[in-house]
C-alpha cells in the first residue's frame, strides 16, 4: 500500500479524534481545522525561521519536532482556553456555526498577515524523516498514544462526566458535575490534538498556508466522526482512516470518484445512524471473534 496515503489516513484519524472529543460531551465544535492550521503554522515558522532548531545533521532533528509540538500544544491550548470560555456558552448548531466563523476569520486574517507567508504560505519546511515510512511510524506512535489517552479518559471521572453531559446536561449538573469545566476540558483537549497533528502535517506536506484550515475541512472532519461513530474513540479513528483513503482509492473510477465519495457520506449516516463503530457492535464483534477462535483452537 502507498505509504504516503497511509500517512494521510493517520492524520485523518487524529483529526477525527479532535472533532470527537467535544462531541463526546455533546458539543458540536467545528474548530478543529483552525487549531490544525495554527499547529502547522507554528511548526512552519519555527522550523524555517529558527536555524538553531535545524541541528547540524542532514535531516531535521526529531527533538526539534517534539519541541514544536510542545509549543503548538501550548499556543493552541491557551487559545482554546480563551475561546472555549466564550463560545461554549452556545449550544448545538449555534456553537457549530460560531466555530465555523472562527475558522473562517482565522483563515482570512492569516491570508493577510505577512509573517505567515500570506497567500503563498511557507514552503521548504525541513524534513525530519527521509522516507514516508518513517513518518508513518512516528504518526502511528502519536496516534497510539492519543488513542490510549482517550481510552484512559473514557474510563476515568472526567470522561464519564463528559458522557453524562452528553446524555443530559441538566441532570449532569444536578449530580454535581461542573459542566462548564468539563466541556472546556474537552474543547482544549480537542485543540491540543489538532495542533499537534498540524505540526506533523506541516513537515510531511513540507509547505503550509492558511487554506489548510477552511470550511471544507471543518465539514470533512465532522464527516469522519459521524461516519465512524461518536460513542467510542475507535469510531473517529476508523472514520478518519476510511474517509481519507476513499477519494484516493477511488482514483481509478476517474471522473466518478467524487460522486461516489458523496454517495458514501450520504448513505453512511442513513444506514448507520450511530456511526459504523458503536460499543454494542464492538462487543458483538469481539464475541464473534472469541467464538471463532475457540472453535478453531484444538481441543485438548
Amino acid at each position: 500500500m502507498d505509504t504516503t496515503l497511509l500517512q494521510q489516513m493517520l492524520l485523518g484519524a487524529l483529526l477525527g479524534i479532535s472533532v470527537y472529543l467535544p462531541l463526546r460531551c455533546g458539543q458540536l465544535s467545528l474548530a478543529t481545522p483552525g487549531f490544525y492550521a495554527i499547529g502547522g503554522t507554528v511548526a512552519a515558522l519555527l522550523s524555517t525561521r529558527i536555524t538553531a532548531l535545524g541541528g547540524d545533521g542532514a535531516s531535521y532533528p526529531i527533538s526539534s519536532v517534539l519541541l514544536e509540538m510542545a509549543v503548538a500544544a501550548l499556543v493552541t491550548g491557551i487559545l482554546a482556553l480563551g475561546i472555549g470560555k466564550v463560545v461554549l456558552r452556545l449550544r448545538g448548531i449555534y456553537l457549530a456555526i460560531s466555530t465555523i466563523a472562527l475558522v473562517e476569520i482565522l483563515r482570512v486574517v492569516s491570508l493577510n498577515l505577512s509573517f505567515t507567508g500570506g497567500a503563498i504560505g511557507i514552503f521548504g519546511i525541513p524534513q525530519p524523516f527521509a522516507t514516508p515510512e518513517a513518518y508513518v511510524v512516528f504518526t502511528s506512535l502519536l496516534l497510539a498514544v492519543v488513542c490510549w489517552l482517550c481510552d484512559r479518559l473514557e474510563r476515568t471521572r472526567p470522561g464519564l462526566a463528559m458522557a453524562a453531559i452528553r446524555e443530559d446536561e441538566l441532570a449532569a449538573a444536578s449530580q454535581g458535575i461542573n459542566t462548564a469545566n468539563t466541556k472546556l476540558l474537552a474543547f482544549v483537549l480537542s485543540a491540543l490534538v489538532a495542533g499537534v497533528t498540524g505540526v506533523i502535517a506541516a513537515h510531511f506536506l513540507n509547505s503550509w498556508n492558511a487554506r489548510m484550515g477552511n470550511f471544507d475541512a471543518s465539514i470533512t472532519t465532522l464527516a469522519f466522526v459521524v461516519f465512524g461513530g461518536t460513542r467510542t474513540w475507535l469510531g473517529p479513528v476508523v472514520g478518519g482512516l476510511v474517509l481519507t483513503a476513499l477519494p484516493e482509492l477511488l482514483r481509478p473510477v476517474g471522473d466518478l470518484r467524487l460522486i461516489v465519495y458523496g454517495l458514501v457520506i450520504l448513505l453512511g449516516p442513513v444506514l448507520f445512524p450511530q456511526g459504523v463503530i458503536t460499543p454494542e457492535r464492538l462487543s458483538r464483534w469481539s464475541r464473534m471473534l472469541r467464538q471463532r477462535l475457540r472453535l478453531e483452537a484444538p481441543t485438548p
Binding site: M1, V242, A245, L249, V264, V276
Partner: peptide, 23 residues
C-alpha cells in the same frame, strides 16, 4: 443489499488497499 454491500466495502477496504496499490 445496499447495507450488506456497504458493510462489505468497509471491511474490504484495508484489504483492497493493500493489494490494489502494489505499484
Amino acid at each position: 443489499w445496499l447495507k450488506a454491500w456497504l458493510k462489505g466495502l468497509l471491511i474490504a477496504f484495508p484489504v483492497a488497499a493493500t493489494t490494489a496499490c502494489q505499484a
